[in-house]
Every structure is written in C-alpha cells, then in structure tokens.
C-alpha cells in the first residue's frame, strides 16, 4: 500500500483530538469528539486503499481495470459513515434530553459509586467515634468504680455505726427493764410493809415493843 502521508497524518490528528474531546463531561463536546474520531478513522481506512485511481465502476467495455481504485475500503467507509451518523443522532437526542431534565448536558458521576465511597468514609468515621466512645466509657467506668467503692466504705461505716447503736439500745433497754423490775419489787415490798403494819409484821411479832 502506497498512499499519501497527508491522509494518515490528517486521520491521526482527527482521531487524537476526537479522543481528547470524548474525555470531556458535556455531552455536546463528546458528540463533537465522536464525529471527529469517526471521520479520522474513516480517513485512516481510506488510506489503506493505496494510490488513487479511477472510479471503481465496471461499465461495459471498461479497459483500465488495473488503474481502478480499491473499492472495498470505500464500502467500509460508507457503512461506517452511516453508523456514525446514527450514533450522532442518538447522542444529540440524549444531550437534549439530559438538558431538558437537568438543565445541563454534563455526564455526572455515578450515584451508587459515590454512595459506596461515602459508606467507606462513614465506616471510618464510625470507627473513630467508636474508639473515642470506648475511651470515654473506660474513663467513666473507672470514675464510677471509685465512686462505688467510696460508697461501699461509707455504707459499711454506717452499718458499723448502726450495729453499735443497736447494741447501745439493747443495753439501755435491758438496764431500764432491770430498773423497772427493781422499782416494782421495791414498791411491792413497801406496799406489803404498809399493809401488814401493825397486824402481821414479823418484826412486830418478834421484836414487839423493842422495835
């Protein structure tokens, strides 16, 4: 194949610039990129057909068959042009619909991807917060433990105090009961003494007037 360099260079430049535009976000730029890439690749395919020649049409009596251009790449290109046209129409419709719905024809990032990334960030944040929470809880538990111990000490002190008080009360109760009993006995003794005064007093009986 001995084609012209111009075709190849031109096709290459179109292909490269088209690819660069395909990387843009707005669908209209992508559309232009697709058109450029399509035309670039068509030129490249045309370059494969070798040197230029006569039209590849076989009229009756055609003699210069040797000088005929290669028809096959032209058939490829015609097909490819039709396909590119269909895709261009589709992209235009899609860009218009996108603009109609969202007011811009940018291709946004995938929502679900962002959600997964956020989920990872959320998990990290949760882990961090959990660590903080664990440390705090540990501190709090230590504090609570101290408090409990102190309370327990106080409680036992109270208990000891209570026991002493109970013992004291018990003692006092017993002492008072004894005192009551003593007083009762004394009172009874005095009573009997008064009652039997003069009649049945043993001392009187024994001692008589000597008392």
């Amino acid at each position: 194949m001995t084609g012209t360099v111009a075709l190849i260079v031109c096709g290459g430049v179109l292909f490269a610039s088209g690819t660069a535009m395909l990387l843009a976000r707005p669908l209209t730029r992508i559309l232009l990129g697709a058109v450029l890439v399509g035309n670039g690749v068509n030129l490249l395919v045309l370059a494969t057909s070798g040197p230029a020649g006569d039209a590849a049409l076989l009229y009756p009596g055609t003699t210069r068959r040797a000088h005929m251009a290669d028809p096959l790449p032209q058939a490829f290109i015609l097909t490819a042009i039709v396909i590119t046209l269909a895709l261009t129409a589709f992209l235009v419709a899609m860009a218009y619909r996108s603009w109609q719905l969202s007011g811009s024809d940018d291709v946004p990032d995938d929502i679900e991807d962002i959600r997964i990334v956020r989920r990872a960030a959320y998990a990290e944040e949760r882990e961090r917060l959990r660590a903080t929470y664990r440390a705090r809880r540990h501190e709090y538990r230590a504090l609570a433990h101290e408090e409990e111990e102190r309370e327990a000490q106080e409680h036992s002190a109270f208990q000891r105090l209570g026991k002493a008080r109970d013992q004291y009360r018990e003692l006092r109760r017993r002492v008072r009961a004894e005192a009551r009993a003593f007083r009762a006995r004394q009172a009874r003794a005095e009573e009997t003494a008064e009652e039997s005064e003069g009649e049945d007093d043993p001392w009187q009986t024994i001692l008589g007037a000597d008392r």
């Binding site: 292909f15 690749v41 490249l44 395919v45 494969t48 790449p73 490829f76 490819a80």
Partner: peptide
C-alpha cells in the same frame, strides 16, 4: 471506533 481502526489495519 477502535474496532474499525483494527479492521483498517488488518486490511
């Protein structure tokens, strides 16, 4: 487009 290029290269 790459496929078409490949076809061109093959041809």
């Amino acid at each position: 487009v790459l496929f078409l290029t490949a076809v061109g290269v093959v041809y």
